[in-house]
Amino acid sequence: MKILILGGFLGSGKTSVLLQLAEYLDSLEKEYHSEIKVAIVENEIGAIGIDDKVLKKAGFNVSNLFSGCACCSLTGELVASIKKIQTELDPQWLIIEATGVAYPGSIRKVILAELGLDATILTVADAKRWQRLVNAMELLVSGQLEDTSIVLLNKVDLVSSAELKQVEHSILNYNQTAAIIPISAKAVIPEAILKKIVNQAEALDDNKA
């Protein structure tokens, strides 16, 4: 079971990315011992879930973690949920959609420490609101970039090329090693980008072997 953690601030477009990524993973023809290709853990800090209903409607196996954050208040529930998914479904891919205020790096550490499983972090950043969010809550948005392998810089259709460069430069200040990929998740994400994400996660898996 390969694990992808999808992080990023509230409203950055995580669920839009997740829908396309999960569909892509589901379409890949690969030999695997389980029939389930993709399972999703949906974490929301609200008491009422919205995104889980959208994902279930799209036909995916979704486990819910509500009213808290998998990186801090719900770590026990997260570990239990992953164990259950591994035992009962054993999917080829597990995607964990973090809340918009979670630190994906902390989620990765919890999974590694408690279950011995490593995960690839993919963070979605909102190009349009980036600077405003950095000004208002730098610790949180920069912290969400820690340990991230790929930053999907979303909503690039809403900014000029000069603004895009500024945002990329700002992100590089916080994470020099992540690949920054501009996207517009409201449109179709090119297959080459989805493939790059898959390759990154598979490379991590190969390193473990």
Binding site: L10, I45, G46, A47, I48, S67, G68, C69, S73, V101, M137
Partner: peptide, 14 residues
């Protein structure tokens, strides 16, 4: 229902 999560105010209703 409302609660605070760090600095975030989470308010849900149906």
């Amino acid at each position: 229902e409302s609660h605070l999560h760090d600095d975030a105010l989470v308010c849900s209703g149906k």
